[in-house]
């Protein structure tokens, strides 16, 4: 990075450190924080969407849709989510390849599962074996995003379902008395009002989502944990310009601080949003605001 970094073995102290912290691998490490943030930025809205669909389905008037919604919200109960993460990554991958296989190679006559192998025709492989490296990485990342969205969508569905039930019944009855249709009551009365009830649950969920991001490592994405393990490991002079002992402790301490800062920052933001949302609401928090303003 810097001009004096050409021969690190002659450096020491701060100069050495400044060179060490700006190596190419460290740049990848810093970029992986971006990966984590990107995952959060993409997953949160997608999971919210899944959750909204799930919650609306769970209170649908048609029984099969309701069952579907209810069982979606129930899948995460009782089972550790890490099991879902490990399961969905392989399961989704195989499901996609299987579907492409059925479409692209209809006259394939071998069984797909041969003993302990899962074999589809070459054209159905995802990503194609001829694709560039970045496509492989992007595919892995999008599988991870989809997995996170499915699991956290189920959490969100549960929160939103509770919030929908919490909107005062009288509000809905008034809307019906004015002659609004079922759809109109849902979109004009229920949805705008449910957020203030959903916020505590959603903010909790956001915290949980932040704290679940290190699991990206298990899904095979080169994330912060991957790089911390990689960079912190003992380096000998033979293989590295910057030999050092086992520095896992320092690297993971850094990650710990990063996550602590991130969660406390989020907490502060949520406090603000909560104050904004309870403005003018018929809840205890809204009442307190009204009294304070008088």
């Amino acid at each position: 990075m810097f001009s004096y970094c050409t021969d690190p073995s002659t450096l020491d102290g701060l100069k050495w450190l400044s060179c060490y912290l700006t190596t190419g691998k460290h740049m990848s490490f810093y970029a992986s924080f971006g990966t984590v943030l990107a995952l959060l930025a993409i997953t949160a809205p997608v999971a919210l969407l899944f959750g909204f669909a799930g919650a609306s389905a769970a209170r649908a008037r048609i029984a099969p849709i309701r069952w579907l919604g209810k069982s979606y919200t129930a899948i995460v109960r009782g089972v550790p989510d890490i099991a879902f993460f490990l399961f969905f990554v392989i399961a989704l991958d195989q499901a996609f390849e299987w579907m492409r296989h059925k479409v692209k190679c209809p006259d394939w006559d071998h069984p797909i599962r041969q003993g302990s192998d899962f074999i589809v025709c070459d054209a159905a492989k995802l990503p194609l074996s001829s694709s560039a490296q970045w496509i492989h990485e992007a595919y892995g990342f999008s599988l991870a995003v989809l997995t996170f969205a499915i699991v956290f969508g189920a959490f969100a569905a549960n929160v939103l379902f509770g919030a929908m039930q919490a909107v005062p019944r009288a509000q809905m009855e008034t809307a019906e008395a004015y002659g609004m249709s079922h759809r109109q009551t849902f979109w004009r009365i229920l949805v705008p009002q449910m957020w203030t009830y959903a916020l505590p649950g959603l903010s909790n969920l956001w915290m949980i989502l932040i704290k679940a991001t290190p699991l990206l490592f298990l899904l095979g994405v080169e994330d912060v944990v991957y790089w911390a393990r990689e960079l912190g490991a003992t380096k000998t002079a033979k293989f590295s310009d910057y030999p050092h002992g086992n520095w896992h402790m320092q690297y993971f301490f850094g990650l710990l601080v990063f996550y602590l800062a991130f969660t406390s920052l989020s907490e502060r933001v949520f406090k603000r949003i909560s104050a904004r949302l309870s403005h003018g609401q018929a809840t205890a928090a809204g009442e307190a605001q009204r009294k304070a303003a008088q």
């Binding site: 679940a212 699991l215 944990v225 393990r229 896992h248 969660t263």
Partner: peptide, 17 residues
């Protein structure tokens, strides 16, 4: 405030040293 996963990694590194 921090993920359990990171706590495990950090604790293991501390225990190792």
């Amino acid at each position: 405030g921090s993920p359990l996963f990171i706590q495990f990694f950090f604790a293991y590194a501390v225990f190792l040293s």
